[in-house]
Simulated assay, not measured.
Amino acid sequence: MLQDTLTIRHYQQLTDALVELWNRGYRFDDLRMYVDGYLAALRHANVLEPYLIHRLEDEVTRYIYDPSNFENPNPASERDYY
Rank of each mutant, 00 (worst) to 15 (best):
V19P: 01
L31D: 00
N46H: 15
R62W: 10
E78Q: 05
R24K: 12
M1W: 02
F70T: 01
Y82E: 07
F28Y: 09
L42V: 07
A41G: 04
A76W: 01
D4S: 14
R27E: 10
L21R: 11
Y65A: 02
Y26F: 14
Y81T: 01
N23C: 06
I8K: 15
R43C: 02
E57N: 12
H44G: 09
G37Y: 11
D66C: 03
Y65R: 08
G37A: 08
R27Q: 12
T61N: 13
R9S: 10
R55V: 03
E49G: 04
H44V: 02
G37E: 11
S68I: 10
V35R: 05
E20N: 14
A41I: 02
L6Q: 11
T7M: 10
P73I: 13
A17Y: 00
L39M: 13
T15P: 10
R24L: 08
N74V: 14
Y63V: 01
D80L: 11
A17D: 11
Q12L: 15
V35Q: 01
F70N: 03
L21W: 00
A17K: 15
Y34I: 02
T15H: 11
R62V: 03
M33P: 00
Y81H: 12
I64R: 12
Y11E: 12
I8D: 00
D30P: 00
L2V: 13
P50Y: 09
N46F: 14
R62F: 07
E49M: 14
I64L: 15
L42S: 08
V35D: 01
L18S: 08
W22M: 02
D29I: 05
Y63F: 15
L39V: 14
Q12K: 13
P67Y: 07
G25V: 00
S68G: 03
L2I: 13
R79A: 07
W22F: 12
P50K: 08
Y82A: 10
G25W: 03
L42M: 07
V60N: 00
Y65D: 11
I8C: 09
Y34P: 01
L2R: 03
A17V: 03
R62Y: 04
Y63L: 03
D80H: 06
P73E: 05
V47E: 14
P67Q: 02
T15R: 14
E49P: 11
V19A: 12
R55Q: 09
T15C: 14
I64A: 11
D29L: 10
Q13N: 13
R27S: 06
V47H: 09
R55M: 09
R24W: 02
D58L: 10
Y38D: 02
Y26G: 00
E78Y: 13
F28H: 04
E71I: 10
R24F: 04
N72R: 12
R55Y: 06
T61V: 02
S68L: 08
R55E: 13
L42D: 01
Y26D: 06
H54W: 07
L21H: 01
I64V: 05
L56W: 09
Y51D: 11
Y63A: 06
L52W: 13
T5L: 12
R27V: 03
E57F: 03
D58P: 00
L31V: 00
M1N: 11
L31T: 04
L48H: 08
E20G: 06
Y63I: 04
T7I: 10
Q13E: 08
P73C: 01
L52H: 15
T61H: 10
I53M: 05
N74W: 04
